[in-house]
Write a protein that binds this DNA or RNA. Structure first.
Lengths: 347, 347
DNA sequence: GTGAAAGCGCTAACAT
DNA sequence: ATGTTAGCGCTTTCAC
């Protein structure tokens, strides 16, 4: 059936070990033999058996990519395809294949990770965003298995974790300060799922900015929704029915912001005239909404690339020390925010 | 380092083969031994070595997923994450892992496919959408390697290809007829990349409908763009600057339609009052645009699921004959289409 | 510079 | 019902 190293050897009149050395391009094989062997490999259509190599080398040249929570849900958000793009390009150039997690529940996924690790399916793992009380990270640490995290660990103090993240606290602070500068004080905060670390960080940045501006926190102004699209819509209902509704909204994610815009539109509240909206991620679609969204570009693609680079490095240099890579963010001003009216010159 | 089958055997006082049989849950092992062996496996933290198994079994329990063209570009479109979701769930329940292609150029990808096949990296392959003159399919056929195609083969007559598709001709016809019913005759067609089979089918359906309605084709009304977002925008410029611009637009994809809406908005052309827009896919976002898009739901998620089911079946029953699975489509009427004014009762 | 042989961890005859 | 043994296809000492 499949052509093996022995047949190549026989055909080329050398020993199997020689063929193996040719594959590895060993320096102690005469270029003449190399040429001859390569020729027969070509002629016979030889391809090394991946599993046999893996078995003896204890390597797979595969990277595991763990999509958190339900990939079911995750894939609804352009964040994941976008990191995947970044991962993909770097994995390709580094010569690694990608194995995707398929589990839907946290438990399934944890089992998959164990599988990948224990059964030598992958050489390293990329964890896409972490949640509070995650059990995967401690496990990987204990196993001393190479991995990188996109996002940050629950407890920053935890040593030996290489992660690639944005400074989400600062980004949220920036966004809040921007709205404050525009004269808004009643600023609503629509966060993503509460267990997500990014949500925690966003909330922290938001609070810091308000605190620095000496604006008292209004608990009613902070709401959290897991569902991206419906979440945005429900959040608007919740916030806009307050006695004193906010004049500006910080939204966890562009997609969620689209839901927000939609609901606002239905309520005949116009953006940015009646209310300002700002969000995070700068997903491709954010410039296509009406109005185009003011948002924070977090360079998702780069997160994926940097994570992959770091992982490959870690695999190839096991003793390398853990790194923290912070990808910068950037405020993209478009048309969804406006100075609060009573501050406008016309007043 | 890792604990092997021998150690479990020794520890449990049995032969390695017995342990192997316990793993396979062979019926000819006493339940007493099974229990004992399982216990020691647990105690020692044994996990079977994936590569060793693969080597002897010639299976990998992995499915290759080939993202066409540049995954770079592909991932910008929600279509791929969405099929992936479908694939993911079914792969998980069937006990298969997923290996993603990472190549960016057609050539890279073709090499990856060859790798996957020749080096026994995967048991089967899912091809996500096909192009004209694709070289992968002939190769896979020649190798007699299990694969399914999402989309349809270039030449339907080609035998032995299992594929999962929509009836895109019919869908495009439906859409055109719907617009005709609304009184539109000047109907623009904004297609995706011309080499994509889906584009060819869409164009065919569009032409059929016009033909049946005895409306002469206006060549200027058909334009093709590869880029999803900018493509939509450019297409609008091209079509709207015609002497007699269309009163309705058929757009290859929801995302592209968002680009179309955006540009129309900039031109102060209002949808659906001034022009009707209809598209394909019913991606989650399509109901969030303003106005919400009338579109054809092609059940992308189901395409992924069905494809995976078919592939798994094919792997497990190699001699099964090729199937064609057509996933039904459905017109989702929202607010982007309207009766042409001169037909309205007020006229 | 090249060959012979052992072994990676597992499974599947073939014994018993 | 369980043990023995021979490989799967490759790499890698160790000889020469």
């Amino acid at each position: 059936m499949k052509v093996t190293i022995r047949e190549v050897a026989k055909q080329a009149g050398v020993a199997p070990s020689t063929v193996s050395r040719v594959i590895a391009n060993s320096s102690r094989i005469s270029s003449k033999t190399k040429a001859r062997v390569r020729e027969t490999m070509e002629a016979l259509g030889y391809h090394p058996n991946f599993n046999a190599r893996n078995l003896v080398n204890n390597r797979t040249n595969m990277l595991g990519v763990i999509i958190p929570g339900a990939s079911e849900v995750a894939f609804q958000n352009p964040f994941f395809p976008e990191v995947l793009r970044g991962i993909t390009t770097k994995a390709y150039t580094a010569g690694y294949g990608l194995a995707l997690s398929t589990g839907q529940t946290d438990e399934d996924i944890f089992n998959e990770v164990k599988q990948m690790v224990q059964s030598c399916r992958v050489d390293g793992i990329i964890l896409l965003s972490s949640k509070i009380d995650d059990q995967i990270i401690p496990y990987l640490l204990e196993q001393q298995f190479p991995f990188v995290l996109v996002g940050r660990p629950d407890n920053i103090a935890t040593k030996n974790i290489t992660y690639v993240n944005n400074d989400n606290v600062k980004a949220a602070k920036l966004v809040t300060e921007y709205l404050l500068l525009l004269g808004h004080e009643a600023i609503g905060f629509i966060g993503g799922q509460q267990e997500a670390i990014v949500t925690v960080d966003h909330a922290a940045g938001y609070e810091q900015a308000l605190h620095n501006a000496a604006i008292p926190m209004n608990r009613d102004y902070s709401v959290y929704y897991q569902e991206v699209l419906e979440g945005g819509q429900q959040a608007v209902i919740e916030l806009m029915s307050l006695e004193k509704p906010p004049t500006a909204l910080i939204v966890a994610d562009d997609l969620m912001a689209l839901g927000v815009l939609r609901m606002l539109d239905e309520m005949q509240v116009s953006v940015p005239e009646d209310i300002s909206v700002i969000s995070f991620n700068n997903v491709m679609l954010s410039e296509l909404s009406s109005p185009p969204l003011t948002t924070v570009d977090i360079h998702i693609y780069e997160l994926g690339q940097k994570a992959t680079d770091a992982l490959v490095e870690k695999i190839q240099t096991p003793d390398i020390e853990a790194k923290t890579i912070i990808v910068p963010h950037r405020l993209i001003k478009r048309q969804s925010c406006k100075k609060l009216d009573h501050l406008a010159p016309s007043k």
